[in-house]
């Protein structure tokens, strides 16, 4: 067992963990932050995406011990301080960028880092950035649209005939 200390969504946490404990297990089982989902076992689907020191990381691909001392962000910490949806979350709701909701936390986390790196991404840039996030429900149409809207772009003419 190893002791890890990190900041998760702005709160300091400290726990004894097994050396082979993944961040997904640490967040879900130890901290009961079940918004981070596990959709595959080969690091492909992105449902477990979290932020570690400001970067998007697949939670299934990093050990809790590796996050010792890190600033970790999860979907549970994304809303505004008053509990209202942040700009990206609101855009996802406004543009129906989610259906079953299972891939959604990972999508929102990826979108947040994308917009930090590239505040006005093109459609092609968004699609490319989401390569590591699989959604089975939406056909990506409204996810891409929501991210464009969250970046302040006019989406009213998308796919207009």
């Amino acid at each position: 067992m190893t002791k890890v200390t990190m900041t998760v969504n702005g709160k300091a946490v400290s726990k004894e963990v097994r050396g082979n404990m993944l961040m997904t297990e640490f967040l879900r089982d130890e901290l009961h932050l079940t918004g981070t989902h596990v959709g595959c076992d080969t690091s492909q689907c992105g449902a477990c995406n979290i932020h570690v020191n400001g970067e998007t990381v697949k939670g299934c691909t990093i050990f809790a011990a590796e996050c010792d001392g890190a600033e970790v962000g999860t979907i549970e910490g994304q809303a505004n301080a008053d509990g209202s949806l942040n700009v990206i979350q609101q855009a996802f709701q406004d543009h129906h960028g989610l259906q079953c909701g299972f891939c959604t936390p990972g999508m929102v986390m990826s979108a947040a880092t994308l917009l930090k790196e590239n505040p006005k991404p093109t459609e092609a840039e968004i699609r490319h950035y989401l390569e590591g996030n699989i959604c089975r429900c939406t056909g990506y149409h409204n996810i891409v649209k929501a991210i464009m809207a969250a970046s302040g772009q006019d989406v009213s003419t998308i796919a207009a005939e």
Partner: peptide, 19 residues
Amino acid sequence: QKRREDVRFLTGAGKYTDD
């Protein structure tokens, strides 16, 4: 209408079986 269920899914508050 915007979906009311989205708020819980977008904030990690959904309750799936594995949760």
